[in-house]
Write a protein that binds this DNA or RNA. Structure first.
Lengths: 131, 131
DNA sequence: CCTTGCCTTGACGCGGACGTCAACGTCTAG
DNA sequence: CTAGACGTTGACGTCCGCGTCAAGGCAAGG
């Protein structure tokens, strides 16, 4: 298949696919007229990349998975380096969750403080009919 | 005080302060030689900006707080528009936490799956002495 | 006088993942 | 023959919050 079809079947854009090629993640045979030609393996590879993107991996981080698929494994995460990336990203996610949770708390506190200052009466819920 | 001192007392850089000025968040009087001159109000204003940054607001989103301080209020969050920003960011944080939690779960599942495929024997912990 | 350290403006760089445009070749249907 | 849909490469734009020069002016100490 050509690039347009691959883009459509994977739900991405031709621009993205060419970009992946630039980054060395995707390679393409060329037909006589210079058009890129892809097969089912490429389809799987792109799907893998896109799936990994949705769970927060950068393109660089998908490289081990791509290499793993290229070296004949059935899944991209059959190799130790891929699993290592999973571990790292899991740690990153946990760290981010912790930070974000803290931030959420600070935000909530700031909001509460501002509301308290705005309406210093603690017994009346906002939306009082008469000032 | 001049820009270097302001930067030092707020824990930021002169470059950042000039950038804030570019964005219209900070204004400075000029002394005879063209140097920027700041007062204590500016110090508070910059501190407010930096604090808001740490809780995830973009510079653009700090603008209501800055305007609020400029219009004479004691705190930047004394105005309705600032409070509205708090609310929005709180919602954003919650949405992000939810997404990130989901992602974390997917990552954990992928890792577990990969490990299971790697060592199909569920009774032996990794690190077996003999293959 | 010279050096040092502060200040000025302006302009480009970065990371990430593409979008968008230019300017063109190619294939297919009518 | 021509229009339209597809493909090609290359290069610059986007967002954000500055960092990092470059190329100087200004003030104070020795």
């Amino acid at each position: 298949m050509r690039i347009g079809e691959l883009a459509q079947r994977t739900g991405t854009t031709t621009r993205a696919l060419r970009f992946y090629e630039d980054q060395g993640l995707l390679t393409a045979r060329r037909s006589a007229n210079g058009y890129r030609e892809y097969d089912e393996d490429d389809l799987q590879l792109v799907k893998e990349i896109l799936t990994l993107q949705t769970v927060g991996l950068t393109l660089e981080e998908t490289r081990p998975f791509v290499d793993c698929l290229r070296s004949g494994h059935e899944t991209g995460d059959s190799c130790a380096s891929s699993i290592e990336v999973y571990r790292r990203k899991l740690e990153e996610a946990d760290a981010l969750l912790a930070r974000l949770g803290g931030i959420r708390g600070e935000l909530a506190a700031k909001l509460a403080g501002a509301l308290a200052r705005q309406a210093p009466d603690p017994c009346v819920v906002p939306g009082a009919p008469r000032p």
